[in-house]
C-alpha cells in the first residue's frame, strides 16, 4: 500500500485543490481528509456518506458545588491553570482544562467529575473514484491529532478490506500534532508551497518535519507566477536540498471557478493551464 500525504506548513497554498484534482484522476483509491479542523475536501469530492461514527475528543472536569469543601487541592495540583477561586467558589475553565483527570482523582470530597466531549465524528463513504474517510471536529472541542489518527487508521483498514493500494492524504497546516499524525508512516510527502516569504519559510519547517520521520519529499509550487524572485529562491533551495520539484502550477482563475462549482479543476476546466500542470504532476507521482 502506498500512502501519499499532501502537506504545506502554511495554510491556503492549495493542498485541498491539488488533493481533490489528484483524487479525481485516480482509479480505485482511498482519500483521507486529515485537516479535521477545517475539512474541505468533501466539498469538491462530494462523497456519499455511508456511515458516521461519533468520536470522543476527551473530557472536561466539572466541580459539583454542593459537594465541594473548598480545600483547594485541585487548584494546587492543576498544571494548566484551569481552576480559579472567585466569588467564594472554585470553578474550572472549560477552555483551559486539558482533560487530564488529576483533579478528579485527588479531590477528597469526590466533588469533581468529567464530561465527555463527543460532538465530533468521522465518516466513511464512497466518491466517484473510490473511497473516502473524513471527519468533523466539533467547534470548541480539542485534540485534533487524535481524530487525525483515527482517520488515518480507518482509511488503512478500509483500503485493506477493499484491496485498494493507494491512499491520498490531504493534510492540515502547521507542524504540530495534526500534521505529525497526518505525516507519520506515509511513503511520500508532497510539499505544496507558493512563492512568498511565508510560503518559503513554512516549506522549510515542514520539510524538516518530514525528514524527522524519514519520509521522502517532493515539492509543488502553486501560483508560481505570483512572484519571480521568491520562485527563484525556492527553486534554488530545492536544488541545494536535492528535493525533486515535480510541478509549478500557474495562478489560474479556473481554480477558483471550479471551486465555486464544487468541482475539481481537472474536471471543470480540463484545458486550463492549472489542470494541464496537475495532470503532469499526477503522471510523475503515479507513473514513476
Amino acid at each position: 500500500m502506498r500512502q501519499i500525504v499532501i502537506i504545506s506548513g502554511k495554510g491556503g497554498t492549495g493542498k485541498t485543490t491539488l488533493s481533490a484534482a489528484l483524487a479525481a484522476m485516480g482509479k480505485e483509491l482511498t482519500v483521507a481528509d486529515c485537516d479535521v479542523d477545517a475539512a474541505n475536501l468533501h466539498l469538491l469530492l462530494q462523497p456519499s456518506d455511508e456511515s458516521r461514527h461519533p468520536f470522543s475528543t476527551g473530557a472536561k472536569a466539572v466541580i459539583d458545588q454542593q459537594l465541594c469543601t473548598q480545600c483547594g487541592a485541585c487548584m494546587d495540583a492543576c498544571r494548566f491553570d484551569a481552576i480559579r477561586y472567585q466569588d467564594d467558589r472554585y470553578t474550572i475553565s472549560e477552555t483551559s482544562c486539558d482533560g487530564c483527570r488529576l483533579c478528579m482523582r485527588i479531590c477528597p470530597a469526590g466533588a469533581i467529575h468529567m464530561i465527555e466531549s463527543n460532538g465530533s465524528y468521522w465518516t466513511t463513504g464512497t466518491f466517484r473514484n473510490g473511497w473516502m474517510v473524513h471527519a468533523r471536529l466539533e467547534p470548541g472541542e480539542e485534540n485534533s491529532g487524535k481524530l487525525v489518527n483515527v482517520v488515518r487508521e480507518q482509511s488503512r483498514l478500509l483500503s485493506e478490506k477493499k484491496g485498494v493500494d493507494t491512499i491520498l492524504i490531504d493534510g492540515p497546516p502547521g507542524t504540530g500534532c495534526s500534521a505529525i499524525s497526518a505525516l507519520s508512516g506515509a511513503d511520500l510527502a508532497l510539499l505544496v508551497t507558493e512563492p512568498s516569504r511565508s510560503g518559503f519559510h513554512d516549506l522549510k519547517r515542514v520539510k524538516q518535519l518530514a525528514d524527522g520521520f524519514q519520509i521522502p519529499s517532493a515539492v509543488v509550487i502553486n501560483k508560481y507566477d505570483l512572484n519571480g524572485k521568491l520562485l527563484d529562491e525556492i527553486e534554488e533551495w530545492c536544488r541545494q536540498e536535492n528535493i525533486p520539484l515535480i510541478g509549478k502550477i500557474p495562478f489560474d482563475p479556473a481554480v477558483v471557478e471550479a471551486m465555486l462549482q464544487c468541482r475539481t479543476v481537472v474536471e471543470w476546466a480540463p484545458r486550463s493551464a492549472a489542470a494541464g500542470e496537475i495532470v503532469a504532476i499526477h503522471r510523475q507521482i503515479f507513473q514513476s
Partner: peptide, 14 residues
C-alpha cells in the same frame, strides 16, 4: 492566531 479551530486557536482567541 494559528489556523484551525482546535487547541492552539482556542488558547489564543480565549
Amino acid at each position: 492566531s494559528p489556523p484551525g479551530i482546535s487547541c492552539p486557536f482556542i488558547a489564543t482567541v480565549d
